[in-house]
């Protein structure tokens, strides 16, 4: 555990989380959420929890991003803001 790398990844995680909830475009938000998942995966791996990092990389960054994008492409935008 190197605290400088920890701090760097944590800062990026917070930035990505804030970006996910502020971006108006749904597709962009889904992609940034994938980036957030991958940064969390890096954080887990750096902390030594390799099994959790593996699950986060496959499910969080892989499948759930694809499912979000698939669902977004099938929805229509109703609100005008």
């Amino acid at each position: 555990m190197i605290w400088q790398i920890d701090l760097m990844i944590l800062t990026l995680v917070v930035i990505c989380a804030l970006a996910t909830i502020t971006i108006k475009d749904l597709l962009g938000a889904a992609v940034v959420f994938g980036v957030y998942s991958f940064l969390m995966c890096l954080l887990w791996a750096e902390m030594g929890a390799v099994d959790v990092a593996f699950t986060e990389a496959t499910v969080g960054a892989g499948i759930s991003t694809i499912l979000y994008i698939g669902a977004i492409l099938r929805t229509t935008r109703r609100s005008k803001d």
């Binding site: 390799v50 099994d51 990092a53 593996f54 699950t55 496959t58 499910v59 892989g62 499948i63 694809i66």
Partner: peptide, 17 residues
């Protein structure tokens, strides 16, 4: 080793996706 049924299953599913 790290990994297991769940992660491997997700990787196999991802190939078909």
């Amino acid at each position: 080793s790290p990994g297991g049924g769940f992660q491997g299953g997700v990787i196999l599913g991802a190939s078909f996706i």
